[in-house]
Write a protein that binds this DNA or RNA. Sequence first.
RNA 1: GCCGGGAUGGUGGAAUAGGUAGACACGCAAGACUUAAAAUCUUGUGGCCGUAAGGCCGUGCGGGUUCGAUUCCCGCUCCUGGUACCA
Length: 924
Amino acid sequence: MSAYNFREVEQKWQSFWESSQQFQASIDPSKPKFYSLDMFPYPSGAGLHVGHPLGYIASDIVTRYKRLKGFNVLHPMGYDSFGLPAEQYAIQTGQHPAITTEENIKRYTEQLKRIGFAFDWSKEVRTSNPEYYRWTQWIFMQLFDSYYDSDEDKAKSIQSLVEKFEKSGNAEVNAVCDEETLAFSASEWKAFSEKSQQEILLKYRLTFLAETTVNWCSALGTVLSNDEVKDGYSERGGHPVERKKMKQWSMRITAYAERLLNDLEKVYWPEPVKEMQRNWIGRSLGAEMVFKVKGHDLQIKVFTTRIDTIYGVTYLALAPEHEWVDQLITPDQREIVSEYVSTAKNRSERDRMSDVKTISGAFTGSYAINPFNGEKIQIWVADYVLAGYGTGAVMAVPGHDERDYNFAKHFGLEIRQVIEGDLENGSFPGKGGTIMNSAMLNGLEMQDAMNRAITFLEENNIGRGKIQYRMRDAIFTRQRYWGEPLPVYFKDELPYLMDEKDLPLVLPEVDKFLPTEDGDPPLGRAQDWTYKAVDGEFPIEKSTMPGWAGSSWYFFRYMDPTNESQFVGEEAEKYWGAVDLYIGGAEHATGHLLYSRFWTKFLYDRGFVSIEEPFKKMINQGMIQGRSNFVFRQKGTNTFVSAGLKDNHDTIPMHVDVNIVYNDQLNLEAFKNWRPDLADAAFILEDGKYHCGAEVEKMSKSKYNVVSPDDVIERYGADTLRLYEMFLGPLEQFKPWNTNGIDGVFKFLKKMWRLFHDAQDNFKVTDTAPSKEELKALHKAIKKVEEDIDKYSFNTSVSTFMICVNELAALKCNKRAILEPFLIILSPYAPHIAEELWAQLGHETSIIHSTYPIAEEKYLAEESHEYPVSINGKMRAKVSLSLDLSKEAIEEQALANETVQKWLEGKSPKKVIVIPGKIVNIVM
RNA sequence: GCCGGGAUGGUGGAAUAGGUAGACACGCAAGACUUAAAAUCUUGUGGCCGUAAGGCCGUGCGGGUUCGAUUCCCGCUCCUGGUACCA
């Protein structure tokens, strides 16, 4: 009887939206803008599963709603199409990653279009398109051409640095640079060879080539950045990762550490994501100082956050990788220390991390002098000291640092108390205490003692207060094929930028996507991979950019995707500005989200964009987990026992495809057809039904719990899918996908359709004036849905629609004055059916061009309220009373109530609390 | 270990400037329509006691504040995300 034909309706409106370019955004200064962004998808070969569109549906609802509210909306979609999976596939099959990527994108796009998203497809970008990545290369060139001026606290052109060098050398330059940069005068600068000058500039450039310790993943044949490594394994593929010294391009993101930290205050992001970034940046305030080595010219630099405990230092500890370890080893210690150092160095990062309990170290035989008291202290090598943090050396205070304490205890080193209190098993007060046994610092509290000690350091020129960050510079190169080539060539072993007019530097063809025999990256296989500069022909860089390069600025390109002369035009950039709503997963907290902020700040500093933070507001969508179903096979047979009876039999559970299970009931025929070996399966049923077991797991092919949006759309339509994904619960929450409730939203749409049609499915809407009840039902919904969208509480909106339709159905309402506004408020959630009924109502323009109705308070006003009357806090009776009654009158009416009288048992209450419009509470 | 997030019926979830716990939906049960099924509609549905009226218990656990606590405070348990020799 129901003629809601979602297939026809959805197909019709999707082609209408596409052919009439309804969602194409253009600059319109007369309207407020709203830029809504979804996280850049990587088009994987598996296609979309129902978890992927969750965030897209939410943002689609917001953008469609914002349009109805008069905003000019930019809601683009595109693909982060460089990436490892396509390349791994290419290595296995020889198929060019560009082909795989193209196919995957096609599939993704089709899937997305079937869900009815209001994306502006004319703005689509793909990071692997040369027209796109020429600008990624261009930004890289700007970074190469910039340095960070610490005085002005911004990036400036390298040319301005050269000018300073020419004027006064680097003595007065306060810039972020490599640690070991030496001082030189203007005349020295001018006298340097070009090569020396370039070498020096490289120490200042915001992207630079340097020997660094990297995360090397031999299975993937490439280096990985810190955020791509999880627990010593690669995030993609789960291959082991080791530490290795290699020459690599890096990004001087550490120059921006302070701003990246402080500006978190300016964005409306989920607190956990901000917190993750804060931890990742890891700012700590402390002091840096040097210890002289007895009998050497060397000075060992350490970083400490507790300089107040300087008199408690009883030894120094160096990382095994520390550059002076070898020189410090005395002959009698040589054998034992060398052995320790080589074992410690060769220990993989994983071993080191999984085994933090074992204490190991070796005494070098050398001694350092504590400049505060002239004491001679041993210098040890210990692998609890990390080479990559601070200076790779620590001053050990076993009395007040747990790691130093354990180490000293293990090796029998002195443990000295310098903070008052109990030192039973070491004392590690986080918030300080009074200093003791510390000469000039005695009696001071932590902060005063630190200040005093730092003053001493500065007066004696042996150290200073320092801010240390945990965050490292970001490695920027990957030894892979499927990424952006770096527009850099080498002359005399030194990197030079190609000319801008030669962009894009297009990825060359190679015979295989593997490293060369000499261990060069795949680009080493390319023919003529050289650059013809004015002064000769030079080899081009063979590594490519990491996955995060293209995604660190794509939000700018969407504003102006076809601009051939700039990465984004000023007008577009100024108009669209920062992203107003960014919906995506929290897993990008320390990668993409940090890099994007970094590049945006850089582009801002250099005057290329007008915003300093790319994403004003962000919300995280929770992951949709899989919900697996199980059947229970009787051991050694082809008989399957229903879940409720399985304990009566000897069974083993087996994953069954969730797509042949409905509401946990197995479709027996489909099961027999699922696999040939199940064709003769027998069943032991409960009430004629086979109930499956269920469990929440990750959505994955091997668990047969992957649900594709295509299947859901096939069965129920896109509008039902959209509503259901929202109805499932709060957006941010992690939840398993299960279709147990999907019939409910589908029924809701059919029920709504019937409001517009008679029993024979003839369209039947009247122009009769609406009743008070009908208006109230409608305006309640208008108000609630609006509040919900503002709070991103989409699940409660769906309930609101249901309540409204239930009420209207009960009132048998088929009045245009009610149904029209209702369709408008529903349209962001279920756009296809809304468009269809809107058209049936006789409208010739799309519902997207209508205006969100205003919730009128006058229809919402209640005259009376059913007061719950509590006695001692327990609800006992209800009294319906007019809302304009006085407190006294309410009390009187409530007390007069029969049930209340019964509870009072003739006594008079101690106290009566009346909250008009809410509740009455009687205290006995 | 440290820093986040969370725990409400058989299920997904709703309700927090403190004010009727369980909206809405699924599932289940009974009924109507139908030769039958599907679809649709009606009614019931937190637990326990009771034919009923009604009562008692109930928002992870234990306390506290309050006329009143899912909501606020203190102390725990469990699940979950991040991070970890960061000096």
